[in-house]
Design a protein around this nucleic acid. Structure first.
Lengths: 195, 195
DNA sequence: CGGGCACATTGACCCAGATCAATGAAACGC
DNA sequence: GCGTTTCATTGATCTGGGTCAATGTGCCCG
């Protein structure tokens, strides 16, 4: 059990993948960097997320805490022993991987084909649905910075900010503070997410 | 064992996911559609590829043959029996899923942050590496249409065409015919893929 | 309480790539 | 052999979102 403070990196792309993690609390961002500093956030991870299931010998992405993170760390060898002892775990990991693949495909559609407005609306919708608790909530927590949202949606900070402002002007959302968005008109948000 | 002709769709997004496929020959494109017809190709599938491992009850994407495809079709229940009988298969699927996740993350970086030139160069590079045979080849087969490449890279047909023309003008590639590209200067191609 | 810092918002302008519009160039049926 | 269809290429123009540049707005710490 390890505690990671906000801004601290606990997986680095390209390093030897000798461990496997399970987040038990907090939130983190997963990202890939290009040589010149361009960054793509490939996902956010919350409680229950498994990380570092690398097939290759090195990690394919980096991970950094957003809010304080607590995580269980397994050495790679120990993971394989666990998999051998508990077949149900392997099934569970396979299901998780399949779920993540579906999410990744949805994100490719977003990045490749959606407008800025559709991306931001889709993101807010997804955050509302994926929230730790069960059913979609009107109040969405955004623990990440605007720059993180931008790097997740393939946009710039300015475009994210302008788009949120426009959605607010249209009465679709409210922005009580920088880390929260209230979905005032979910139906129109869904329409904005499609086109 | 089923035979699918080019242009024929054998998985449809949203339909009940009652089967699981393994491609034994040919090539296919996997894609998601938006209501207004915008399309994102999330990947291409060749011999050996597993398809349709849906966690949810419906397929998350459609699949259509590019070249004639031969595939093994398993009913969902039969897959679960196979998984129970052959634990090695489950491990294999988990590895495949992890590999696909890594590829999906790389594609998110491409779609979110790379320029048109970098996307096309990255694509050619990846096709050279992923070719059915082992080591990277100079002659890359592109069985898909320009429109498929465009929808895979989040570009338009025109931009793909212009970018290929420019890479050829620079002496980085040759285009002997519409379905083949010869990598004349792999080192510069790699540089073009990064920035 | 007030200066400084980190982050977000807003405005003015620009450009990579989209769109619109011909023009090639294979492949096919007749 | 020769229209016809389909796909790719090329050119001209337009625009959504990027870039550059201030301007807010908390929040922390002395």
């Amino acid at each position: 059990m390890v505690q990671i403070e906000p801004g601290q990196c606990f997986i680095t792309e390209g390093e030897t993948a000798d461990a496997f993690f399970n987040i038990t609390a907090g939130s983190a961002k997963l990202y890939k960097l290009m040589a010149d500093g361009r960054r793509q956030i490939t996902g956010f991870a919350f409680r229950g997320h498994f990380l570092g299931l690398a097939v290759s010998s090195t990690y394919a992405f980096s991970a950094e805490a957003i809010e304080p993170v607590r995580l269980c760390r397994f050495a790679r060898a120990r993971l394989f022993r666990l998999l051998a002892d508990f077949p149900a775990l392997e099934r569970r990991l396979l299901e998780r991987a399949a779920t993540e693949l579906v999410a990744a495909q949805e994100q490719m559609l977003l990045l490749g084909r959606k407008t800025a407005r559709e991306r931001v609306a889709s993101f807010l919708r997804a955050q509302a649905l994926a929230a730790p608790c069960g059913r979609p909530r009107a109040m969405v927590a955004l623990p990440m910075r605007r720059g993180d949202i931008a790097d997740y949606l393939g946009l710039t900070i300015e475009t994210v900010s302008r788009t949120l402002t426009r959605l607010r002007a249209e009465g679709i959302i409210e922005i009580p503070d920088q880390t929260h968005v209230l979905l005032r008109d979910p139906a129109r948000l869904v329409r904005a997410a499609e086109g």
